[in-house]
């Protein structure tokens, strides 16, 4: 097997993790990874030797993700939903998550896709600001602002969740 394919294979676990943080559902996340790999292999020649395979693959996947989110946005799929709708969304059965993990995963899904991507890039995937800005195709200032707002929003949602939990306990 050639070196390029070996390098791509080695990145799959990281791609899956990034996809999972963007989409939550395991099968959908793997579908996104599959699309990313298909596109990458068709365009192997675009990948310059010396360039990090990770950065190249993450860039491809991010574009796929944003393209889809844009279509969703345009189709107006996302009609107004009450807050409770989020809680009604059942977590996939096979995913065993602790309450804390589920809460933070829910909160992460609830922040806007561009902030989510920026935050995950840096906080989970460990890219530097320069690398993440490059992958997401935004200026460093925009990236920083998305990270800051994303963190703030995430914390606010976690506080809300904690409050709702407290209210429920009181009601019991």
């Amino acid at each position: 097997m050639d070196e390029k394919k070996a390098a791509i294979l080695g990145e799959i676990p990281r791609l899956r993790r990034y996809a999972r943080s963007l989409l939550r559902d395991r099968d959908s996340a793997d579908d996104l990874v599959q699309d990313c790999l298909e596109r990458a292999l068709v365009r192997l020649d675009n990948w310059q030797t010396g360039d990090s395979p990770r950065r190249w693959l993450f860039t491809i996947m991010h574009h796929l993700f944003i393209d889809q989110m844009r279509k969703v946005n345009r189709r107006g799929e996302a009609a107004m939903l009450p807050l409770e709708a989020r809680e009604a969304q059942a977590a996939p059965a096979e995913q065993v998550e602790s309450i804390a993990s589920r809460e933070i995963i829910d909160a992460l899904q609830a922040i806007s896709p561009d902030r989510r991507a920026a935050l995950v890039m840096v906080a989970i995937e460990g890219f530097s600001y320069a690398e993440a800005a490059n992958i997401l195709g935004v200026p460093a200032g925009t990236l920083m602002s998305r990270i800051a707002r994303g963190r703030d929003e995430l914390r606010g949602l976690l506080d809300d969740a904690a409050r709702r939990r407290a209210i429920r306990i009181v009601e019991k």
């Binding site: 298909e38 889809q68 107004m80 709708a85 989020r86 922040i111 806007s112 949602l157």
Partner: peptide, 29 residues
């Protein structure tokens, strides 16, 4: 192939609304 996970993306967008309580907390900027 790219249409397979579209529904999950839609669900994710709806979750974004659940969280913020309004419209698509969108792909701004």
């Amino acid at each position: 192939s790219s249409s397979r996970w579209w529904r999950a993306a839609a669900a994710a967008a709806m979750l974004a609304i659940g969280g913020v309580g309004g419209y698509v907390a969108g792909i701004d900027n």
